[in-house]
Design a protein around this nucleic acid. Structure first.
Length: 276
DNA sequence: ATGATGCCCTGAAAGC
DNA sequence: TGCTTTCAGGGCATCA
């Protein structure tokens, strides 16, 4: 599932490929993906425009166009943005095709159809993200241990893992990297924030960053269906320590077994030995 | 306000 | 074998 590292990987790839390219034509094959716009209104807003800049906030990709509009894309669970040859055939899960100047097309695929594309005026971007209330970007220099302590302490009654996934606390962390960060920091996912010491939160701060940076270096985790913009799997999955490791021996070599249960409706993995 | 649950979706895997 | 059920889950709506 595309979380910060996967979306960031796609952003970096599209940043090298899209700016300067023009959208020659748009086909919408699944109109729910662009709600509340209709396919014809959507096409009218983006057709003929050039890409200017590709950026990311939380798990949302921002494709800025030269016509004063920006496409926002959320890939949710199974969304993909794929650079294809122009004229390539749509698949069953293809929801939109952007034919580009040059030889390529940008495909938006989404097997489970949870993701979406929205078009907003670039001038309204700030207000939009303000309203979403996203927390700090965990890889930004301004995200310090102090920032994390303050944001966690504001929700002291909550369990740490669901809070890590709360986008208003830290932006971009999802299920995989929440489990990975807690494994690294040696903290049980069920711990109440009020019970965490400042030292533990400082440790967690480093762990979150390490987990995300490592995944970006590996071009993301292909646990389910994630592919990068060139249709390649990321190489981070075999390097995970907790997520998807149920029943295996802890890679820390402490003799612990990775256990799996549900927490807040999400599959949650942790080491019985070293996470406390 | 907060926490729990349901919903959107599809295909793979498990269960019977 | 073949049908049914469960599971994967981000983010939002709904309800206690």
């Amino acid at each position: 599932m595309p979380e910060l590292p996967e979306v960031e990987t796609i952003r970096r790839q599209l940043s090298r490929e899209l700016p300067g390219k023009r959208i020659l034509n748009v086909q919408v094959l699944y109109s729910k993906a662009i709600k509340p716009l209709t396919p014809s209104r959507f096409a009218k807003m983006v057709k003929g425009a050039k890409f200017v800049k590709i950026s990311r906030r939380a798990k949302v990709l921002r494709l800025e166009l030269a016509n004063g509009r920006t496409m926002l894309v959320h890939l949710k669970m199974t969304g993909r943005l794929l650079l294809q040859k122009r004229g390539a055939a749509p698949r069953k899960e293809t929801e939109a095709i952007f034919e580009l100047s040059g030889r390529r097309a940008l495909f938006y695929d989404d097997l489970r159809r949870f993701g979406w594309i929205r078009v907003i005026k670039t001038a309204e971007l700030g207000a939009y993200f303000e309203k979403q209330g996203y927390g700090p970007e965990p890889l930004a220099a301004s995200f310090t241990p102090k920032t994390l302590i303050a944001c966690l302490r504001a929700h002291s009654g909550k369990r740490i893992k669901p809070l890590l996934m709360d986008q208003t606390c830290i932006a971009g962390v999802g299920n995989i990297y929440a489990d990975e960060s807690l494994w690294d920091a040696g903290i049980l996912p069920t711990r109440r924030v009020a019970d965490l010491t400042d030292q533990e939160i400082i440790k967690l701060h480093g762990a979150v960053r390490r987990a995300l940076e490592k995944a970006i270096r590996n071009r993301g985790t292909s646990a389910d269906s994630y592919l990068d913009a060139f249709g390649r799997e990321g190489t981070n999955f075999p390097r995970l320590n907790a997520y998807g490791q149920a029943g295996t021996r802890c890679k820390r070599g402490d003799g612990g077994i990775i256990k799996k249960t549900k927490l807040g409706g999400r599959g949650t993995h942790w080491c019985l030995k070293h996470q406390k």
